[in-house]
Simulated assay, not measured.
Amino acid sequence: MRTVNIHEAKTHLSRLIDEAMKGGEGFVIAKAGRPMVRVVPMTAPEPQQTRRLGFLTGHVKIPDDFDRMGQQEVVDLFEGEA
Rank of each mutant, 00 (worst) to 15 (best):
V75F: 07
V4K: 01
E25R: 12
P45C: 04
G24R: 04
R52S: 09
T11P: 00
Q48V: 14
G33R: 02
L77H: 03
P41S: 02
V39D: 03
F55E: 13
P41W: 02
V4G: 04
L16M: 08
P47H: 03
K22V: 14
L53V: 08
P35D: 07
D64G: 15
Q48Y: 10
A20D: 05
P41C: 02
V40D: 07
V4C: 06
R34L: 10
M21A: 12
V37I: 15
G70K: 08
E81G: 12
P45G: 07
R15S: 13
G33Q: 06
P47T: 04
R68Y: 06
H7G: 10
V75E: 05
G54V: 05
M1D: 10
M69P: 00
A82H: 07
V74D: 01
Q71I: 11
M1K: 08
E73R: 13
A82F: 08
T50D: 03
R34C: 03
G33F: 06
R68Q: 13
Q49G: 10
R2N: 09
P47C: 02
E25A: 13
R51F: 09
R68L: 09
P41L: 03
D67Y: 12
E73F: 11
I29H: 01
G33N: 07
K61H: 12
I29R: 00
N5V: 07
T43A: 13
T43W: 00
K61E: 14
D65Q: 11
G58A: 01
T43E: 11
A44Q: 08
V4F: 08
V75A: 07
E19N: 08
G70V: 12
D18I: 06
E79D: 11
G23V: 04
M69E: 13
R38T: 13
M36W: 14
L53P: 09
I62F: 11
I17P: 00
T57R: 11
L13Q: 04
R34K: 15
Q49T: 11
P35M: 05
L13I: 10
E81M: 13
R52K: 14
D76L: 01
Q71A: 15
G24K: 04
V60T: 03
R68H: 10
S14H: 13
T43R: 08
V39N: 02
V39M: 11
V75P: 00
L53M: 08
T3L: 03
F66V: 10
V37L: 15
M69T: 10
G70D: 14
R15Q: 14
D18C: 05
D18G: 11
R68I: 06
R34W: 04
K22T: 14
T50R: 04
T50Y: 01
V4I: 12
T43D: 09
E19D: 13
P45H: 07
G54W: 02
R68F: 07
V37P: 01
A44D: 06
E73H: 11
K22F: 11
E79P: 00
L53G: 08
P63F: 03
P47N: 05
R68C: 03
G23L: 06
Q48N: 11
D67P: 01
V60N: 02
K10T: 06
P47W: 04
R51H: 09
I17S: 00
H7M: 09
L56M: 07
G24D: 08
